[in-house]
């Protein structure tokens, strides 16, 4: 663990009169896997979007490698958003090559990489099909492939297992572990506590836009008397229907 790659400092965000994030601060160290946890509407996705420049913060700063994120190729980013999809009327291989090229690969490199990935996830025979001819699970595999193209140094996965079947979930876990081993920084937004226990070094639990708990998994558990993360989650959000 070295210096932080991500620093969120006194970040606040309001939409109209609604304050979604209130004076939030945390950091993510280079090479660690960080869990951004919380109930629905607690501000996880808003924080990620503000970090990636899609939202302008009402107050505070969010930086990656010391500066606000800009799509200029200086940070090799892989982002799997919560709202995800693909160009439905494009071929699988064309879509992957397009994203590969946007991420700085040559057309040849992107095609080679995509074909190898599709082989790995047993979709090699689907490369020339239109995306809308693929099942939902197959499309998720393609989205995951696009996310990890060009070996990202920072992986941001917003509810990565949402809608995944057990096979795809296992594939995702394997891929995250591979990138951890390569030294990538991983931010996971998730409700799945078993994944957090398995993969995350540190976590932050958001409640009403504020940090309800922040530290290593061990520290957070200790703070709550050695309870499991599931129990801690229920304790923090217990009275809420959406938790």
């Amino acid at each position: 663990m070295t210096k932080p790659i991500i620093v969120v400092d006194k970040f606040s965000m309001s939409f109209g009169d609604t304050k979604v994030i209130d004076d939030l601060s945390f950091d993510v160290t280079r090479g660690e896997t960080f869990g951004l946890l919380g109930s629905n509407g607690s501000g996880k996705t808003t924080t990620i979007r503000a970090l990636l420049g899609a939202y302008i913060p009402t107050a505070g700063t969010l930086t990656i490698d010391g500066k606000p994120y800009k799509v200029d190729g200086t940070v090799k980013l892989g982002y799997l958003p919560e709202e995800r999809g693909l160009y439905k009327k494009e071929k699988v291989i064309d879509t992957m090559v397009y994203f590969g090229r946007l991420k700085g690969m040559s057309a040849h490199q992107a095609k080679e990489w995509s074909l190898r990935y599709l082989e790995r996830v047993e979709l090699a025979d689907k490369a020339s099909l239109l995306v809308d001819k693929l099942s939902g699970g197959q499309q998720q595999k393609v989205q995951l492939g696009i996310t990890i193209m060009n070996d990202p140094e920072l992986l941001i996965l917003d509810e990565p297992t949402k809608g995944f079947d057990p096979v795809n979930r296992r594939l995702l876990m394997t891929i995250i572990e591979e990138h951890q081993q390569k030294g990538a920084t991983v931010i996971m937004v998730t409700h799945q506590m078993e994944e957090v226990e398995r993969l995350c070094d540190r976590i932050i639990l958001l409640k009403d836009g504020k940090a309800a708990a922040y530290g290593t998994v061990k520290e957070v558990k200790k703070k709550y008397g050695g309870k499991s993360l599931d129990d801690i989650f229920v304790e923090i959000y217990g009275g809420r229907d959406d938790a």
């Binding site: 979007r49 800009k70 799509v71 982002y79 799997l80 160009y87 946007l102 989205q143 696009i146 996310t147």
Partner: peptide
């Protein structure tokens, strides 16, 4: 409109300005 309808926009805007 297509990128919005297909929900591909968020992934796209973190890859290209």
């Amino acid at each position: 409109v297509e990128e919005k309808e297909n929900r591909v926009i968020e992934m796209l805007l973190t890859s290209v300005e």
